[in-house]
Simulated assay, not measured.
Amino acid sequence: MAAFHVYVHLALLCSLAEQRAPRPRDAYGPLDAPSPMTPSRKAFEQARYLGESLRSECWEELGLAGRRMVDWLGAVLDAMDPAPPPAGSFLHLVLDRYLKEARRIRRAPLSDDLAATLAALGRSEAETFRAVLSAVGAGEHPGTSADEPAAAPADDHPAAFTRQRRHIADTLLRLAPNGYRLDSLCRAPGPSADAMVRAMVEASSRELAATSAVAAAGPQTRV
């Protein structure tokens, strides 16, 4: 509930900042500065997902005031964002998290433990990527190569890891017909491509958290 409340307000703030960018630019810098403002589109998408999750996961645990607050914030979103992602979409959110973690890894001190973890994750994520491409029938599609990056110097594991993650995320989002889901491409019966991607990201996140690398690198998203 706290995160939903924050992201609705963040979406409004960022939308207004984008509309009025010329005026505050001299004081606060351009929108694409090295530490950029969160894009309003991302804030809207996160708010939509959190609102849906409140209704589907813990609606019965909310009191009357809580439900009315969710309804009110949802109405605010409807008024501000007339073209939301399809209900239940999460591919774009987990891939955004996937890339944020990669950027944090680039800033983390490289240890032998982290290097070994990145090498193992690089192999397992490439394998999952190939499985997802097969599930959506895109294994031979131009630009969807699942090849791992060329061997990097021993001290360049984070850079190679980031390049591979960027390739995977860009490819999957490009393949998604609406930018939000891959499952419409899956051949039935068969596994859910979106669920495969989410499982990969969550498993990798647990492995990275065990090395303390992501936590040590600090937060990535700033307003």
Rank of each mutant, 00 (worst) to 15 (best):
G63K: 03
E60D: 06
V132M: 05
R68H: 07
E61G: 02
A11Y: 03
V70L: 02
P177V: 01
R23I: 08
G143R: 07
A160E: 15
D155F: 07
L99I: 08
P219T: 13
K100Y: 07
W72L: 08
L133F: 03
S111G: 03
A176P: 10
R165N: 14
H157K: 15
R130V: 11
P39G: 02
A195D: 10
S15I: 02
T211R: 12
D81F: 05
D113S: 02
E18I: 13
Q46T: 07
H92I: 06
R104L: 14
D26F: 11
E207I: 09
Y49G: 00
S56I: 04
V132Q: 04
L10H: 05
G122E: 10
S56F: 02
V8G: 04
A116Q: 11
A2V: 03
P109Q: 05
A169T: 07
P34C: 13
E60L: 05
Q19P: 01
G88I: 01
L16S: 07
L50K: 02
P149E: 05
N178W: 04
A159T: 15
A213Q: 09
S145R: 10
D113N: 04
L208R: 13
G179F: 13
Y49W: 08
P177S: 04
R222Y: 12
L172H: 02
P189G: 00
L95V: 05
P158W: 10
D156R: 11
P22I: 03
V214W: 14
P109A: 01
R166W: 15
P84I: 06
P142Y: 11
R187E: 05
L110M: 15
T171N: 13
A209R: 15
S111F: 07
G74L: 01
V76G: 01
C14P: 01
R107S: 14
V223Q: 09
E61S: 00
D26C: 04
T171P: 06
L93A: 05
V136I: 06
A213F: 11
D194P: 00
F90N: 00
W72A: 09
G63L: 04
S35K: 14
A79M: 10
H141Q: 10
A213W: 11
H141V: 08
F129S: 05
A27S: 12
A135Y: 05
P149H: 09
W72S: 06
D32T: 12
L173V: 12
L10C: 02
L175S: 14
L91S: 00
T128W: 06
R174N: 12
N178Y: 05
L12E: 00
R67V: 01
A154C: 12
E202D: 15
L172E: 03
S205P: 09
T38A: 11
S134L: 13
C58L: 11
R181H: 00
E148P: 06
E52F: 03
L16V: 04
A213E: 08
E127V: 03
